[in-house]
């Protein structure tokens, strides 16, 4: 069961990484990247490293997403 969940998470990671690259709307790409970071945090948790998971959820999903939102607000939204 847990292996199936792991495979599902990795497939979601690959799909969202491809979606970030394909999306033309940069704000949507930033939000997809935030979802990628949250899934990555769950993967770290399943790999039994809660410290890295906490940092990933705070830095990857929080700070990086907000910095990118600020960046998009200063530049163009469409690629």
């Amino acid at each position: 069961m847990i292996e199936f969940f792991n495979v599902l998470l990795v497939i979601f990671l690959i799909l969202s990484a491809l979606a970030v690259e394909r999306t033309k709307d940069l704000l949507s790409a930033v939000i997809i990247f935030g979802a990628y970071s949250f899934m990555m945090a769950v993967v770290w948790l399943l790999l039994r490293s809660p410290d890295v998971a906490l940092t990933e959820a705070a830095i990857g999903a929080g700070v990086t997403t907000l910095l990118f939102v600020g960046l998009v607000s200063r530049t163009r939204r469409w690629e």
């Binding site: 410290d51 940092t55 705070a58 929080g62 700070v63």
Partner: peptide
């Protein structure tokens, strides 16, 4: 789990 870096990032 956690520490100065993760907690400081949360407050930031």
């Amino acid at each position: 789990p956690g520490g100065g870096f993760a907690g400081g990032a949360l407050i930031g």
